[in-house]
Each structure stands twice: as structure tokens, then as C-alpha cells.
Amino acid sequence: MIVIESLTKRYGSATVVDAVSMTIERNSITVIVGTSGSGKSTLLRMINRLIEPTSGRVIIDGRDTESEPAHLLRRRIGYVIQGHGLFPHRTVAENVATVPRLLGWEPDRIRVRVDELLRTLQLDPAMYADKYPYQLSGGQQQRVGVARALAAEPAVLLMDEPFGALDPIIREKAQDDLLEIQRKFGTTMVVVTHDIDEAFRLGDRVAVMSEGRLLQYDRPEVLVMHPADPLVARMTGSAERAMRLLSLTTAGEALADTSANTATSNNSAGAAEMAADGPIIRASASLREALSELLWRGSESGTVVDDDDKPCGRLTVAAILARGRPR
């Protein structure tokens, strides 16, 4: 858990971060979103003390970050930056091994860890370990950057615009991979982005910043339904807030909710409905995607299937639309 207590950064008369307080839960992804100059990157960098705060403090798992030298603190916190910042004169394996080496791990332990991480990030060690960063594609470089940040098993991972340099198709994949990694390692992640879609896609909680102040910090659906500030409303997009709400729920989750409410009445009819026509909807797809698919096919309902392609229920347009309204 990261507790930020009225953290402030001033440069001369300019206040870049203005008394921000927030609590970041363990094992969650918190996204800090804001326009450029909103102070979001400065806030992130004060967590690992790349920037020293003017006042206020940061407490990670009960320990004040000021209680040890900054470079030792940073070895316990993963850090990923835009444009990855890989060391161009070192191989992929050497890049990933940076922090374990600083921590003085045994060479064997480092080798095992590097291999494990490269595999997790879908980079075959035999093929990529000895390559230099310039020999990799942008997406691969980004993944090596993430592997390097995770190498010493940090409890906290800070990411500053980690997907900023990627094209949209690779970016979506990279975001999915990050969610996967978060589930696998249980790392507490703090991600800075200017992209509200990315914030909603990744964040368990989203913090909106503007001009150094924290405008609102809550679960994404709360930001959509009860924006605390006109700017938050503008950012979450009042014109498409219904669609945004739909994008926060997966088809699987929606189905679980409905069947819990109407379990008895639907059971007999359910079996018959299973056989009905309509497109296949993956349980992991968002309701927004499901709705789009149904509109495109002109169907009133579709069959939801789980990861093993096993049908687990029907989802109707009406049921989806009902979830696009504040309840």
C-alpha cells in the first residue's frame, strides 16, 4: 500500500504538484491521468524520489520513503518510462539483469530470473537474450523495459506513459499483457497516462489531475456516473459516457449479475435459448464490444462463451442497454 500525504512540489513560484493526498491499494492498478503539465509525471517521480518533494511524504508499506538513500529505495521499486530507456550498449539479458546485479544476486539466480521474465513477456530467451536493443521492434523494446523493471520482484511498479511510443494495435496487446502480468505477480502498479481510454482500460482506480491538483480519485464507473468536477466530466466524455460505462463491464460479468437476479425464472428457458441463433460473444469481451457486434449482425441477442468455447448464457441488446444507464 502506498500512502501519499499532501505531497507538494514547487519550482520557484510555480506549484507543479499541489498538496496531493491519496492511498493506493496493494495489488491494484492505479492510473493517474491528466493533460500535459498537470503534474502527473512529477507526482509519479516523487514516489521513487527521482524528484524530491518540496513538502509532504510518501509511505510505502508502512515505511517512509525518506528513511533510506534514494538509490536504494529505487532498487525496490520498478520503473518503466516512455521510450523504454534501454541501455543501448547492453544486451537484452544484461538490461533485464540491471537491478538484480545492483542488488548483488548470484549469477545463477539472475540467469533463471531473466529467462523466466523474458518468457513471461513472450520473448524467447534463446532468440533474444543476446540481442541488442536496436535489433528489436518497438513493441519488443517496450516489453524488455517492463521485464527490466520487474526483474528484482518489486512490490511496486511505476510506469510513465509506458505505451506512449507504440502504435495502436501493439498498444492494445501491451495493455492486455500488462493486466496479465499484474494478475500473475500481484504487483501494485501506478501508471501515468494522458489517454483516458487507456486509464479506463487499465485502472482499478483512476486519478484525474489538472494543474497540480487531484480532481478526483475513484473507481472508473464512479468517474463516469458522478464526476466531481466539470473537467472530469469533460475528460470522461459526457457525449459517450454510456459507451464508456459499457466498456467497463465484460460480457461474463454482466451474465453473472443477471443470472444471480433471475436465476429461477430463466433456468428452464435458458436451455432452449442456448440453441437460438445470434453471434458468439466471448465472456472476456466488454459490453461495448458485445453491443457493437450485435448491432453489426442485426441480432437481438448472442451466445456468450467462456475461454474454453463452452456456452454459458445469452446476452440480449436490452440487457446490455440497461447497463449503460446509471443505476
Binding site: Y79, G85, V99, R148
Partner: peptide, 18 residues
């Protein structure tokens, strides 16, 4: 030296000398 590389080096926990 590219700024991103230097920032990464510090962010990884290298001392100024390292």
C-alpha cells in the same frame, strides 16, 4: 547520452557513480 537512458539508470537505482 539519451535522457531516457539516464533517467532509466537512475530509476533502476544506480548511484551517480555507478
Amino acid at each position: 547520452c539519451p535522457a531516457a537512458v539516464l533517467e532509466a539508470a537512475s530509476g533502476m537505482g544506480m548511484s551517480a557513480r555507478q
